[in-house]
Simulated scan of single mutants.
Amino acid sequence: MVSAGVLGLLLCVQISRGSEELRLVDGGGRCAGRVEVKHEGEWGSVCAYDFDWDMRGAGVVCRQLGCGTAAHTSPYAPFGQGKGRIWMQVYCLGTEDSLQNCPHFDWGEHFCSHERDVGVICTEALELRLVDGGGPCAGKVEVKLQERWGTVADRDWNMNDAEVVCQQLGCGSAAHTTFNWRISQDHSPLMLALINCSGNEEAIWNCNIKGWGPYSTPFDYTTYVECQGFSRLAGGDSACSGRLEVRQGRAWVSVCHGHVDLMAAQVVCRELGCGAALAVPGPGHFGPSVGPFWDGAFECNGTELLLSACTQRRSHMQTCTHSAAIICSRKHWGCGA
Rank of each mutant, 00 (worst) to 15 (best):
Q14L: 14
Q14N: 13
S16Q: 11
R17H: 14
S19Q: 14
E21V: 00
V25R: 13
V25G: 04
D26V: 01
D26H: 14
G27F: 07
G27C: 09
G28S: 08
G29V: 07
R30Y: 01
C31H: 03
C31E: 06
A32G: 05
A32S: 15
G33D: 10
E36K: 07
E36D: 12
K38L: 13
H39A: 13
E40L: 12
G41H: 04
E42L: 09
W43F: 10
S45F: 01
C47T: 15
C47G: 15
Y49S: 12
Y49P: 04
Y49T: 02
M55P: 03
M55R: 13
G59D: 11
G59K: 08
G59P: 11
V60S: 11
V61I: 14
R63A: 15
R63L: 03
R63Y: 02
Q64W: 00
L65P: 11
G66V: 05
C67P: 09
C67Q: 04
T69W: 14
A70T: 04
A70Y: 05
A71P: 09
H72N: 13
H72M: 11
H72I: 00
P75G: 09
Y76V: 01
P78F: 03
G80R: 07
Q81K: 15
K83C: 00
G84N: 06
R85V: 12
R85P: 11
I86V: 15
W87V: 03
W87G: 00
W87Y: 06
V90F: 02
V90Y: 03
Y91Q: 14
Y91V: 02
Y91F: 03
C92H: 10
G94C: 09
G94F: 04
G94W: 07
E96K: 08
E96P: 09
S98R: 14
S98G: 15
L99S: 01
N101V: 00
N101K: 15
N101P: 00
C102M: 08
P103F: 04
D106F: 09
W107Y: 12
W107A: 10
G108N: 13
G108E: 10
H110Q: 12
